[in-house]
Write a protein that binds this DNA or RNA. Structure first.
Length: 113
DNA sequence: AGAATGACGCTGA
DNA sequence: TTCAGCGCCATTC
């Protein structure tokens, strides 16, 4: 068996974000045991072929804002549309009420209860 | 190998 | 609250 790659772990974790909930890059990184690797999470999502079953649009930055950049070639605006479709209000600058929709990541399994 | 880049995050002004 | 600066680290050149 081959250990899951970093990308695979990111995708598996993002898949666990429920509909109409939001997570930050840092949150996802920490949840897969890669604290401090928020940027790598962004790259992993960037490599995701679209469309995808992975709810990548539910991941935003810690400032509660969609990360807009030309390098995304429009996926940032698609992200805004997908979030609106889930009922999450997003203003023209990509800002959203992160606190009200923040996802609670699964905690590390305790050693023995 | 060394430098630049970036879908990030925290701190201080 | 907004903004600049710095730390971060895999990827890319």
């Amino acid at each position: 068996m081959e250990l899951p790659s970093f990308d695979q772990r990111v995708y598996a974790m993002v898949r666990r974000i429920p509909r109409a909930r939001l997570a930050t890059y840092g949150q996802v990184a920490e949840a897969i045991g890669a604290y401090g690797c928020a940027r790598q999470v962004g790259w992993a999502l960037r490599r995701l072929p679209l469309p995808s079953p992975v709810p990548w649009h539910r991941v935003v930055n810690a400032r509660g804002q969609i990360s807009f950049t030309p390098s995304r070639e429009g996926s940032d605006w698609i992200q805004r549309e997908l979030l609106l479709a889930e009922g999450i209000p997003v203003d023209a600058e990509g800002r959203l009420p992160l606190g009200r929709y923040l996802w609670v990541p699964p905690l590390d399994p305790p050693p023995l209860g």
